[in-house]
Simulated assay, not measured.
Amino acid sequence: MQTVTIDWDHPADPKPVREREHVRDYVTTGGLDGHLWHGVPTLLLTTVDRATGRTARTPLIYAEDAGRHLVVAAGWGAAEHPAWYRNLTAHPEVRLQVGPAVLRATARTACPVERDVYWPAMTALWPLFDDYRAAAAPRELPLVIIESLS
């Protein structure tokens, strides 16, 4: 079996210009510009593409609980799960940048009980998550729990 080396240091950035600029500002300023986006905290999640093995970086709104980071696979209310979510279900080891900190972590989908506990906190932070959930129906928007390995 061939060992594949994952290049965490050179991830692909999002294609939409607005998201790509957000990521570039976040990275170049160590999170000083970009950590807060429209008044809410964001992190950069780097996942491994399930098909190619290449890494890709995505900015996401997050909440914290007991040292864990919580994100929603909303995909702006699209009918399908976003690529970053499908990637982490295939390869749960991820990298996070939260402000200036870069962390190794693992990600998993919250169980129904965890989802019920955390969903109100996520919608309090970003009320549009409820709109995205309605637009995506019948797809349920996964809530993802990310735990640092560092």
Rank of each mutant, 00 (worst) to 15 (best):
P11Y: 05
P11R: 09
A12M: 13
A12I: 09
D13S: 10
D13T: 13
P14Q: 14
R18G: 01
E19V: 06
R20Y: 07
H22E: 03
H22C: 03
V23R: 02
V23Y: 02
V23S: 01
D25P: 05
V27L: 15
V27K: 11
L32P: 00
L32K: 07
D33E: 10
D33C: 02
D33Q: 12
L36M: 10
L36V: 01
H38C: 04
V40F: 07
P41F: 15
T42S: 13
L44W: 12
L45W: 09
T46D: 13
T46R: 15
T47H: 05
T47W: 11
V48F: 04
V48Y: 05
D49R: 14
D49L: 08
R50L: 09
A51H: 15
T52G: 04
G53L: 12
T55A: 06
A56Y: 01
T58G: 03
P59S: 07
P59F: 10
L60R: 09
I61S: 06
I61L: 15
Y62F: 15
A63M: 10
A63T: 07
A63S: 14
E64Q: 12
D65Y: 12
G67R: 04
G67A: 00
R68Y: 00
L70A: 00
V71H: 00
V71I: 15
V71N: 00
V71R: 04
A74K: 05
A74Q: 03
G75P: 07
G75L: 01
W76V: 01
W76H: 03
G77H: 05
A78G: 14
A79R: 13
H81M: 07
A83V: 13
W84K: 00
L88T: 04
L88R: 11
T89I: 14
T89R: 15
A90N: 07
A90L: 10
H91T: 12
P92E: 08
P92G: 05
P92I: 09
E93I: 11
V94F: 08
R95P: 06
L96P: 06
L96Y: 05
L96G: 04
V98K: 14
V98M: 11
G99N: 14
A101C: 00
V102M: 07
L103M: 04
R104V: 02
A107R: 04
A107L: 04
T109I: 12
A110G: 04
C111T: 08
P112A: 12
P112C: 08
R115V: 12
D116G: 13
V117C: 03
V117W: 11
